[in-house]
């Protein structure tokens, strides 16, 4: 029995090693490529060990020769804006869907779900003309608005099932103690679904940070570009050295990974509380 368990632990560890290598390799390859001189890269002489001593050189080239850091700052504005706006609206809407019965609840719930089906490529043209009319083209705030439309429903689903699990008696007790519905939401519900809020925050943050299609069609000024459009502009051009391009990719990836790892524990528990099931 113990021998069998040891064996299965061994198999598990081996499988985990394999999966970890598969998942980790492209990441490792970004680092490795960023640390290899461009001349070596194009001669097919990329070694398997990154030359870490090049780190500082590579990043100083990135900061001085390209406006990439500025684009990242724009990405940060878009991502945080999307997160904030999505969470505020999603929390309130999720609370209404979880706790109240009202006329039109079904259609409204379907509306939130249906946006998950809408292809961005279909909406990009009508949204372009809408944003032109609203004067929101070339503006980061425009990107926040459009990203929120796609990110907010996901946050809503996570939060709704989390709020479903908050004991209703807590809210009734707060009502007896004199809380208004808005106070109940702030004082009782939000602190109690904090892990799910974190999970929703990470997911909406990624939406804002990664988004490319709307960013590339709505933002024309090079200075207003975001990280994703800036990075994509390197694809297929040869004036920027490849190691610099990959260092940009690395720098663009690191904040997302750090943000994610910091929240990882909360994401798993947040997804458990707001488990996607049913």
């Amino acid at each position: 029995m113990i021998a069998r368990r040891r064996l299965s632990t061994g198999v598990r560890a081996l499988l985990a090693l394999l999966l970890t290598c598969l998942a980790g390799f492209p990441l490792f390859w970004i680092i490795n490529t960023a640390m290899t001189p461009t001349t070596d890269l194009f001669q097919g002489q990329q070694r398997l060990v990154p030359d870490i001593s090049r780190t500082l050189d590579v990043f100083s080239v990135l900061t001085t020769d390209t406006p990439f850091l500025g684009w990242m700052a724009n990405s940060a504005v878009v991502a945080f804006g999307t997160t904030l706006l999505s969470l505020v609206m999603a929390t309130m809407a999720a609370y209404a869907l979880s706790r109240y019965k009202f006329v039109g609840k079904g259609p409204m719930g379907f509306l939130f779900f249906a946006t998950q089906m809408l292809p961005e490529a279909l909406l990009v043209v009508p949204l372009y003309s809408l944003f032109a009319a609203l004067g929101l083209l070339n503006q980061l705030s425009g990107l926040v608005l459009v990203n929120t439309a796609f990110a907010m429903p996901v946050a809503l689903f996570i939060l709704k099932s989390a709020i479903d699990n908050v004991p209703y008696e807590l809210e009734e007790s707060a009502r007896v103690d004199g809380c208004s519905p808005l106070s109940i939401l702030q004082v009782m519900v939000v602190p109690l679904v904090a892990p799910s809020m974190a999970a929703a925050a990470v997911i909406t943050f990624f939406d804002g940070w990664n988004e490319y299609l709307f960013a590339t069609t709505f933002i024309r000024d090079r200075s207003s570009w975001v990280g994703s459009t800036g990075l994509a502009s390197f694809i297929g051009e040869f004036s920027t050295p490849l190691d610099t391009v990959f260092s940009a990719a690395l720098v663009f990836t690191i904040p997302a990974i750090i943000f994610f790892l910091l929240m990882q524990r909360k994401i798993v528990s947040g997804l458990t509380a707001g488990s996607v099931k049913g």
Partner: peptide, 20 residues
């Protein structure tokens, strides 16, 4: 009348203590 206006206190079966 809203619960608050009734000048009452309610002790719940589960106590409904605010866990946070």
């Amino acid at each position: 009348l809203e619960p608050k206006k009734r000048n009452i206190a309610f002790v719940f079966q589960s106590y409904a203590l605010y866990p946070h």
